[in-house]
Simulated assay, not measured.
Amino acid sequence: MLFVLKMKSLFSPILSTFPSHLSKTTPFSTSFQLSQTLLCKSPSLQNPNFLPMKPVMASLNSSTSSTSVEGPGSLIEASRLSSGEIHVIVGPMFAGKTTALLRRINSESINGRNVAIIKSNKDTRYGLDSIVTHDGEKLPCWSLPDLSSFRQKFGADAYEKLDVIGIDEAQFFEDLYDFCSKAADHDGKTVIVAGLDGDYLRRSFGSVLDIIPLADSVTKLTARCELCGKRAFFTLRKTEETQTELIGGGDVYMPVCRQHYVNGQAVIEAARIVLESRKVQCDSYLEAAPVI
């Protein structure tokens, strides 16, 4: 009994130093409350346009990170590098790619971001200074032969303030990959690309498919088959021209489903054979005709 009393007296000073009004879980709950207080004061929750710097903060908080950030200027530059995005919109003709692009650009502009739109100067169907949908929706744009000249023509200072760049008819730009990579990875821009993923023979068109590995998102739109009304994934060329780049509207192309694409190509090929045989017969007749 005496031994038990002595042991109790040894532990009692230690227990008496722990405040009676605190529970064992208090340090955790206090830490949680503090973190909640800091989060409530975070500008990312107060300002909906604030872009969180997740990659930067992760590298700063990690003890194993090899990234070196020195000074406030370097921190700002690092945050800009982590904010770029690439979004790709593809589909056949008449699928609403340009409409989707303009809708996204309008949304970004309403949210207070600086935007600009580029299109190829090869497309002159609706003028050079505007991007126009098949439904008549219009926005001013920069019409350029290539994307590499955009920064110079737009102005270096204006480019630095630019947040979002829209690119329409992207299949016509040969330097699409290099431009998107630099704009998003190094300049911190959000790039929204709209273009054909395939030509009239269902082959890769331009460099649109090349930037998919760079993209944050890819949206594949469909049109309505003009022959049966089903979903159309492909573009059928109505004319006999065989060059890949042939700019035109409903007079040259129509969206079709898989069945009518295959059938349509068969009909076009049969018509081509008939026309060629008639041409051969006509040439033979002209050669055999007597000269008077």
Rank of each mutant, 00 (worst) to 15 (best):
A158R: 15
Q281K: 15
F3C: 11
N106G: 11
K189W: 02
P43L: 00
I165E: 02
P72M: 05
P55G: 03
T222G: 10
D135F: 09
S35D: 01
G155A: 03
K97C: 05
P43H: 01
N263H: 09
Y159K: 00
Y200R: 12
A288K: 08
G188V: 00
W142H: 14
E269S: 09
L128M: 12
A183F: 02
R203A: 09
V218W: 01
A156S: 11
A194P: 13
V132L: 08
M93Y: 05
S35N: 02
P255Q: 02
Y177G: 07
V280S: 15
F3A: 11
N121G: 08
Q265G: 07
P43I: 00
F205C: 06
K153G: 07
A78H: 08
S143M: 04
G195N: 03
A183S: 05
D187W: 06
M93N: 05
F179V: 06
F94D: 05
F233E: 09
M1G: 15
L2D: 01
G91Y: 00
V256E: 02
T99S: 09
L38H: 06
P140L: 05
S217P: 10
K138V: 02
E85N: 08
C180I: 00
K153L: 15
K161H: 02
D185K: 13
G91P: 13
R224I: 11
K6N: 09
E137W: 06
E226C: 14
K220I: 11
E241A: 15
T242Q: 10
V256P: 04
K6M: 10
L147P: 13
R151A: 08
V4Q: 12
K220H: 08
A58G: 14
S44N: 08
L176C: 03
K8Y: 03
S44Y: 07
I211D: 04
L38T: 05
F233N: 10
D251K: 07
L246F: 08
A223R: 01
A289K: 13
A270N: 14
E245I: 15
V115S: 14
I247E: 09
P43N: 02
L101I: 05
S74K: 07
Q36L: 07
T67C: 11
G229W: 04
A95V: 07
A288Q: 12
T17M: 11
S204A: 10
K6G: 14
D251G: 10
K161E: 01
Q281M: 12
I292M: 15
Y261E: 04
L15A: 12
P255Y: 00
L5E: 06
